[in-house]
Amino acid sequence: MTDAIRADGLTKRYAATLAVDAISFTAPMGAIIGLLGGNGAGKTTTIAMLMGLLIPTAGTIHVLGHDMATDRFAALARMNFSSPYVALPARLSVAENLRVYGHLYGVRQIEKRIAELAAELDLNDLLDRPAGQLSAGQKTRVALAKSLINRPELLLLDEPTASLDPDTGDMVRTWLERYAAETGCTILLASHNMAEVERLCSHVLMMKQGKIVDRGSPADLLARYGRDDLEDVFLDIARNRREGTP
């Protein structure tokens, strides 16, 4: 079976700065992969290259079997992205925003799809409200709805539960688990919430200074570092207390 993501020797250099240093990894279809690392580790740059927003200095990326250098639009139609750091037009209502992206992604029966997402993500009371007037948590749920509008086969999520209260965060995580299980969607999740990564991800990539410094299942990493939770593993790596096995 084709991997959902296959990155080989992926490198990004900005003048003297090496943001991503020859990383290689694969994401099997249906897996939920965690991309972890401190600020400046290269996570955002890696995600931007996976989406074709950034051209790598070297290396290749295949997404859902499409070479992102030559065939990125075919891949983009089958994937989606959500980040609290990229906004939706504030004056448009939630429904209008979802309609815009429904058209951009060629979704059939847009209104039906919006109704499904509104029911599943508890957005019914928000559909007619301007996106700019929502709370941070509501915006995150709307951004998630936008990212699911085209029933993506690959979902790139940057901090999907940032600014959510524990109850809503748990609802979103449960929903993501169910969505991935039901649809076979592959999810690449960049997060600083270690409990979330431990719960959702079958495989974790640890990044530091542009490199993948360790990888494995959460259980493997906990065993390898002799720790009880991923946060301590993260700190071990960030503070150079242990060498990993990239």
Binding site: F81, V86, P89, L104
Partner: peptide, 12 residues
């Protein structure tokens, strides 16, 4: 509206 990121990663 800080929306370009979404537009440029859509199939547009």
């Amino acid at each position: 509206s800080r929306n370009l990121g979404h537009v440029f990663v859509s199939p547009l």
